[in-house]
C-alpha cells in the first residue's frame, strides 16, 4: 500500500485541520501578543499600536528584576526539593515488583484528575494557623507534654505555638513542590524503567555497594531523564501564578503574578505581553542549553 505521506493531496488534506487549529489558536494569538509587546498603553488602558521598546526597558527596571530574580530563585529551590523527593519516588516505582508498578504510577498521576484550584485550596486548609498541620503538631506536642508530666516534668515544652506557614514564601515552595512533583517523577521514572538492570547488577557484582552503584551508575545513566524532569519542574514553577497567589504572602509575588496583574487590575496589556515574551525567551534559552549539553554528551569522545 502506498504510504499516505507520499500522496501529496492526501497529506495536504489530512494536515489541514491540525495546522489550521495551531495557526488560529496558538500562533496567531502569540503573534498578536508579540505585536502588543511593542505597543503603548493608552490612558484608559487601551492598546495604542507602536514600535518601541519601552515595555522591555521597563521590564528590566530594578523593581521588576527583583521579582524575576525571586521567581528564578523560588523555582530553583522548589525544583531542588521536588528532585530530592521525586528521584527516590521514581526509583521506588521503577524498581517495585511489576504487579505494583501501575498502582504506584496511578497514585502519582491521580492528583491531576482534580482541579488545581481545589488542590491548592486544600493546602490552605492544611497550612493555615488553625489547619490540619498545626492540629497534628499540637496533638503530638500535647502528648509529649503529657508523657513527661507522668514523670513530674509538667509543661516541659511549654505552650504550643502554632506555626505561621500559610501566606509565606515557604507555603509557596511547598505548593510548587506538590503541584510539579508528577512532572519531575514521570520522565525520571521513564528513563529508569528503560535502564537495563544488568548495569546495576554488574556494578554490585564488581564489588560496589548500593550507594556507590547509585552515584556511579544509576545517576549518570538516568541523567537525561533527571535533566528533563528538573527542567520541566523548573520552567513550570517559573511561570506559575496560582500557587503564589493563593498560598503566598505580600512578598511572594512571582513573575507569573506580575504578568497576570498587567492583564487584570493594571490593564496594561503591552507591558504584560513584553513580560510574557521575556519569560518565553528565558525558557527557550534554558531548553537550548539543555539541547547543546545533550549534543555534547552524544558527540565524539
Amino acid at each position: 500500500m502506498e504510504n499516505w505521506r507520499n500522496n501529496k493531496i492526501a497529506f495536504f488534506i489530512l494536515s489541514m485541520p491540525p495546522t489550521a487549529w495551531l495557526m488560529i489558536f496558538f500562533t496567531l494569538p502569540l503573534a498578536i501578543m508579540w505585536v502588543y509587546s511593542f505597543a503603548d498603553r493608552g490612558p484608559q488602558g487601551q492598546i495604542e499600536l507602536a514600535i518601541n521598546f519601552d515595555n522591555y526597558i521597563r521590564a528590566v527596571e530594578w523593581i521588576h528584576l527583583g521579582i524575576i530574580w525571586k521567581s528564578i530563585w523560588t523555582a530553583a529551590i522548589a525544583t531542588a526539593i521536588t528532585f530530592a523527593i521525586g528521584f527516590p519516588l521514581a526509583m521506588g516505582i521503577a524498581f517495585a515488583p511489576p504487579q505494583w508498578k501501575n498502582a504506584l504510577l496511578l497514585m502519582v498521576i491521580l492528583p491531576f484528575w482534580t482541579n488545581l484550584l481545589i488542590r491548592t485550596y486544600a493546602w490552605i486548609a492544611v497550612l493555615r494557623t488553625r489547619g490540619f498541620l498545626n492540629f497534628g503538631l499540637e496533638w503530638v506536642h500535647d502528648k509529649i507534654n503529657a508523657f513527661f508530666a507522668l514523670f513530674g516534668l509538667t509543661d516541659l515544652l511549654g505552650q504550643f505555638e502554632a506555626l505561621d506557614l500559610l501566606y509565606s514564601h515557604n507555603a509557596v515552595v511547598i505548593g510548587l513542590v506538590y503541584v510539579y512533583l508528577p512532572f519531575l517523577v514521570l520522565p525520571i521514572y521513564a528513563t529508569l524503567e528503560k535502564l537495563d538492570k544488568s548495569y546495576l547488577e554488574a556494578s554490585l557484582d564488581l564489588g560496589a555497594g548500593h550507594w556507590r552503584t547509585l552515584f556511579s551508575i544509576t545517576f549518570p545513566l538516568a541523567l537525561p531523564g533527571i535533566l528533563s524532569g528538573c527542567l520541566l519542574a523548573f520552567i513550570l514553577s517559573m511561570g506559575t501564578f496560582l500557587t503564589p497567589d493563593l498560598l503566598g504572602g505580600t512578598d511572594s509575588e512571582m513573575i507569573g503574578n506580575l504578568i497576570a496583574r498587567q492583564f487584570t487590575s493594571s490593564r496594561d496589556w503591552p507591558f504584560g505581553s513584553a513580560l510574557s515574551f521575556l519569560l518565553l525567551y528565558f525558557t527557550f534559552i534554558v531548553l537550548w542549553v539543555r539541547a547543546t549539553m545533550a549534543d555534547r554528551n552524544r558527540g565524539p569522545v
Binding site: 537495563d196 544488568s198 548495569y199 554488574a202 554490585l204 564488581l206 564489588g207 545513566l221
Partner: peptide, 22 residues
C-alpha cells in the same frame, strides 16, 4: 552473602559494559 561480597564475578549476556565509562 550479598553479590557485592561474593568472590565470584559474572559476565552478563548483554555484557552490561557501562556506556558512560571508557
Amino acid at each position: 552473602v550479598e553479590p557485592t561480597h561474593r568472590p565470584v564475578n559474572m559476565v552478563f549476556q548483554s555484557y552490561a559494559v557501562f556506556p558512560h565509562m571508557t
